[in-house]
Design a protein around this nucleic acid. Structure first.
Lengths: 146, 146
DNA sequence: TATTGTTATACTCTATAACTATA
DNA sequence: TATAGTTATAGAGTATAACAATA
């Protein structure tokens, strides 16, 4: 029973977190997908749309749409690929880079609020437990798929 | 830093859990929304579409669509409201009830797998921590909204 | 007059298929 | 011949507005 209550609680916090993130992104005119593009380019550097499509498990056609939207918002730009004239590199504009940096700061503040009053050891133990759950879930998914 | 890593891990498990649930529901021909309807009717008993719309934060018009789909799948039915001839009551069919019961069993098994090797006390402590995080997140959202 | 649910319509997100330019 | 990205089109999911029946 208690195991199921744990899962229910995990599902609940996931839903609340998910909705909250989506709401916050919405205020900035971003969707989860466009944010994913920004995140990938922010962390992986300038990339081809093809790479983004593969990383996001989305069609190349849809990446075109997402990048179009981000360009209209002035957050990314298309630059020519140095070695392949078929391809473009999606790069962050200064405004896009600044937005990512603001979002990172917001997350630091949120993380601090959520763990307030806990010791570093407690936070780290909790993180480790959740990491284990994530790994087990991944393993179950792999097993079911393969 | 470690606080942020905790939040990152929580966001990751949320995303993986979310995707997994959506994939599993998809196999049954259900979407998150139609599942939400089933869940509400399963836990709250027969309800008017208006009540479902309020609970789900969705337009009444959309509930019509969702219920139409569930009826086509034989999982719910519309019955006349005893006191209000404008309204209908959405009720689970035996097949719908059986599906909810199967889903509950699946979740019990999943919860057991994810917490395997942990003592009841450990699981309960973890649940409590996550519950606290959920409550704090709710408080922050309320604060931001109000 | 207000409310329940539905018909009509439109907008967003995402996919498939066909095409152009390049490799 | 294969690949990167785009034009054209279509399908889900969800919303708003107008309307019918009932309260």
């Amino acid at each position: 029973m208690s195991r199921t209550q744990f899962l229910d609680q995990l599902l609940l916090v996931s839903a609340v977190l998910h909705d909250d993130q989506e709401r916050e992104l919405g205020k900035l005119g971003l969707t989860p997908r466009t944010t994913h593009v920004l995140w990938l380019v922010h962390h992986g550097g300038p990339q081809r749309q093809r790479d983004l499509a593969d990383a996001m498990q989305v069609t190349p056609r849809h990446v075109t749409t997402l990048v179009d939207g981000l360009i209209a918002d002035g957050l990314v730009e298309r630059t020519p690929h140095p070695d392949d004239r078929r391809a473009v590199l999606v790069t962050l504009t200064p405004r896009g880079a600044q937005l990512m940096s603001t979002m990172a700061d917001d997350n630091v503040r949120l993380a601090a609020s959520l763990t307030e009053g806990w010791t570093d050891a407690e936070v780290d133990d909790l993180r480790g437990r959740i990491e284990t759950v994530t790994a087990r879930l991944h393993a179950l998914i792999e097993e079911a798929a393969g």
